[in-house]
Design a protein around this nucleic acid. Structure first.
Lengths: 190, 190
DNA sequence: ATAAAATTATAACGACTGGTCTACTATAAT
DNA sequence: ATTATAGTAGACCAGTCGTTATAATTTTAT
């Protein structure tokens, strides 16, 4: 039983990968079924409401992947500044890899659809909120105030999304590196 | 001679508006010609290379609009911290307006196309660089070091792009407001 | 073993895509 | 008056889009 994964998950993973790379409208269902090797009949069997439904599952899948990554780093590194720096440096290194497939995890879909699909918009909003909750929790458990933790978690989230955008656009890890280096400034305890 | 603008500019403005709202793949040429009232024959007369060529002009148009906005605020407000805060607050207020058509100015197109169209990727990169140059210039003229000015300009750019993304996704000006409030921290002179 | 249910496999649908092409109109130079 | 040029107008193309329909097959329950 080597690689017998179910079709539903295979579709979600392929969709997640492709949407991250070129957004919602930039990827067609034909490409998703080609990449996944799952026939179109199965796609509409598992996602009767079609592309939008699949996209929401893909967003949730991406969200969980990011949550795992954040948790892993946060468990490994106690200091919140160092932990967040490590997270961001890790991203900057991916850019260096040839043919990297980084991309704004859900930022592209969010900005394409915020005005056209409420279900997608809400799925993206929930992802951002969940990530921010993790940052906030880490900060609070390190002695930061409730208020500052909440505010900083928003900033960190914005910096990461914006940093990824700048780095993929300029094909350079530099923007993310600069962001990581400036982290301590934001985290001066008040 | 009330509203006799040339077709080329009318097309660019319509494209700029629509691409900001739903990105490159989310907007079709038919929608652009409908919104602008310019026929398809004229579109391909002015932009023989088609959608990609029009998109690049639209990106440059958006870039110039943002440059004007930044310059206007920077000329009006001398202190760099206050100026950047004003810029970001202004964005947060747009979100509050019903049916606002804010959107990441070029972030959506950039993240959709960074891996598929080099000409578009480069146009977006140049826009980011131009905006950062303005931030940097403002900081240097206020006595910040070359190095810090450059780094902060990257951070500010990332914060604005990320902040807009968070604000449009959550349908709230809050993220941008928080970012504006935390600006002073980033700008502690070293 | 058989029936029912779950899943896969294709083909086709109408709508729309970006792009091409040709006919037409307006203006100005000759 | 004629011709040249710039721009307008929109029908049309092949291909792709998301979606639907239905048949074939596999899996599960009895």
């Amino acid at each position: 039983m080597v690689d017998k994964k179910n079709s539903r998950d295979t579709l979600i993973e392929a969709a997640s990968r492709l949407f991250r790379l070129r957004g919602y409208y930039g990827v067609g269902l034909n490409e998703i079924i080609e990449e996944s090797g799952i026939p179109k009949g199965s796609l509409y069997y598992y996602f009767p409401k079609g592309k939008e439904e699949l996209a929401i599952e893909a967003i949730n899948h991406t969200k969980e992947m990011v949550i795992s990554k954040i948790q892993e780093v946060f468990e490994r590194i106690e200091d919140p500044i160092e932990a967040m720096q490590a997270l961001i440096y890790q991203l900057s290194e991916v850019i260096g890899e040839s043919d990297h497939k980084l991309g704004m995890p859900i930022g592209t879909i969010a900005s394409e659809n915020y005005s056209t699909s409420e279900p997608i918009r809400i799925a993206c909003q929930l992802a951002f909120e969940d990530w921010q909750s993790l940052y906030k929790k880490k900060l609070i458990s390190s002695g930061y105030s409730e208020k500052q933790s909440k505010e900083v978690s928003i900033i960190v989230n914005a910096l990461i999304e914006g940093g990824i955008l700048l780095s993929i656009t300029s094909k350079s890890g530099k923007p993310l590196q600069v962001i990581a280096e400036q982290m301590p400034l934001l985290l001066i305890k008040k």
